[in-house]
Simulated assay, not measured.
Amino acid sequence: MKNLKSLAIALFLAAGVSVNAQTKKIDVKASTINWVGKKVTGQHSGTVNFKDGAVVLKGTKLVGGTFTVDMTSLTATDLTGEYQGKLNGHLKADDFFGTDKFPTSTLVIKKIGSKAKNVYAVTADLTIKGITKPVNFDLAVNGNTATTTFKVDRTKYDIKYNSASIFSAIGDKAIDDEFELAVALKF
């Protein structure tokens, strides 16, 4: 009887938590991901699109989220024509993101801490090319929007092409190991 009573209390408390949490799907058309990749001789920038995603809120407080990115939508926006096509093809090839084998990447929020009013310190699992590694970033939530900027070390996801940390004699052909993502969510 005591175990039954404990189970009933646990179920009641769990139900109360789930009732208070609200999952809000992101608007994939209005949400954006902009990227910047730097190299010794300059940089390239572009976009990649969300496939789907959602944030989980308890009242106005962020408590979770899961996002899927359509890696096949990866495109450079700083180039046009033939040069854009060449760069896009190279970024989608196996020595970068291998989008034929890995058409999506995911980010799953694992831990959230409050940093300031409406700003959260987030730890998430980022999966690129089937490899999952933790990433940390600050996420600002304001109404039905959230924004963040953070860097990703591509070498942790087996993207080693022209990495100076791996190929020390690469010289001016080196590409930075980290690329930057600027994310704006609408939900």
Rank of each mutant, 00 (worst) to 15 (best):
N3K: 15
L4R: 15
A8M: 08
A8N: 04
L11K: 05
F12M: 14
L13A: 14
L13T: 15
L13N: 09
A15N: 08
V19H: 05
A21N: 12
K24P: 09
V28N: 04
A30D: 08
A30P: 06
I33C: 02
G37V: 01
K39C: 10
V40K: 05
G42L: 11
Q43N: 14
Q43T: 10
H44G: 10
S45Q: 10
D52M: 09
G53V: 10
A54N: 15
K58F: 00
G59M: 06
T60N: 15
L62Q: 04
F67A: 03
T68G: 02
D70F: 12
M71H: 02
T72C: 05
T72S: 05
A76F: 01
L79R: 07
G81R: 03
Q84L: 05
G85Q: 08
G85H: 02
G85K: 07
L91Q: 04
K92N: 14
A93I: 12
A93K: 11
D94W: 05
D95T: 07
F96L: 02
G98C: 10
G98K: 05
G98W: 04
G98L: 01
K101L: 01
T104L: 01
L107Q: 08
I109S: 06
K111H: 13
G113H: 05
S114E: 12
K115E: 10
A116Y: 08
A116E: 12
N118P: 09
V119T: 14
V119M: 04
Y120R: 09
T123G: 13
T123E: 07
A124L: 06
I131K: 12
T132W: 00
P134W: 00
V135W: 00
F137T: 06
F137D: 05
L139G: 15
L139F: 03
V141E: 06
N144T: 11
T145F: 00
N162V: 09
N162H: 03
S163V: 09
S165F: 02
S168C: 02
S168L: 01
A169F: 09
G171D: 14
G171L: 05
K173W: 04
A174P: 09
I175S: 15
I175D: 15
D177G: 01
E178C: 03
L181Y: 07
V183T: 08
A184Q: 08
L185K: 03
L185A: 09
L185T: 08
K186W: 00
K186P: 08
K186R: 11
